[in-house]
Design a protein around this nucleic acid. Structure first.
Lengths: 154, 154
DNA sequence: ATAAAACCTACTAACTGGATAGGGATTATC
DNA sequence: GATAATCCCTATCCAGTTAGTAGGTTTTAT
């Protein structure tokens, strides 16, 4: 159930964008440097995120990338789905990309025991990632940093 | 977060073995036929499951495969891990195969916001699959079949 | 002895992940 | 209006994994 680097990179880059000031575009090069993600690879990821309407690009000099919305309105789940596809372990249990069950002995959608289990798992994952926004993550990051500073002063 | 066919096949084959009578070995060919999984591929999967001590093979004529334990003592989580690796979205949040966080800006294990989130997801998944056994699944299957028969008689 | 079966190793084709490369289009600034 | 910075887009490449096939060796019930 591991995330590919694509998903991991996307989340990390967005967290970086979320902690930046609103309406302040960060150029690819700087974002890549800050996150230590290969620039040209990050560019492709940002293209996907743009297609998903999660980020916006501003062209030309002084351009860069910024969140397309308020960080509190961008969920982690939406980003993971954009990068990795549906959350469900099996497409027969997916709400966003449902397909028929591949099992030979699947009695019917409603009666399929495996599908029931995969749907439980999907709901459990979605319950977390769809209710966590980049606004939340940015806030937690700030809290952590404040806590670290306090430690330092003692 | 999708399962590969390997994981899906493994679970389906084990469910088939779980509904069989105890101590009654099912030969590869029959298991493949019942589940409609390519026989030689299923064989490799069963080899892995044997290494994981989930199934046992009985050689020679009248041989076949059977569960190595009572179905109620084989969890879905254990099988998924054997086929797909750790459940956690990132290895930094894995309990079974922990490694350092790959993020450049990771402040520390305990303070890492991303790791916290991935750990939540891992716990949510594990909470389901580690508490669901093939005994449970077999029972649910029998219930469904009984319900289907009842429908038929009405 | 024979046939049925697990066991094991090697191979292959296709796909995916993780990049790298390079050119075209747009825009702020001088 | 030239220029430099920047996004935008497509192509290519390599390595590893997935999904499957093939064919042999060993064990065992009959």
């Amino acid at each position: 159930m591991k995330l590919s680097t694509r998903g991991d990179y996307a989340v990390r880059a967005l967290l970086e964008l979320s902690t930046a000031e609103a309406d302040n575009a960060i150029p690819l090069g700087e974002l890549a440097e800050r996150t230590r993600i290969p620039a040209k690879y990050l560019e492709q990821i940002l293209m996907r995120l743009r297609t998903a309407r999660v980020v916006r690009g501003k062209r030309g000099a002084r351009g860069g990338y910024m969140l397309a919305r308020d960080p509190h309105r961008v969920t982690v789940g939406e980003v993971i789905r954009a990068m990795e596809g549906p959350l469900a372990p099996s497409l027969c249990a997916s709400q966003t990309a449902h397909t028929a069950c591949p099992a030979y002995r699947c009695p019917s959608e409603d009666a399929c025991v495996m599908r029931g289990l995969w749907a439980e798992v999907r709901d459990a994952i979605a319950g977390i990632v769809d209710h966590t926004t980049f606004g939340d993550l940015a806030a937690r990051t700030r809290e952590q940093q404040a806590a670290a500073r306090e430690m330092y002063y003692i």
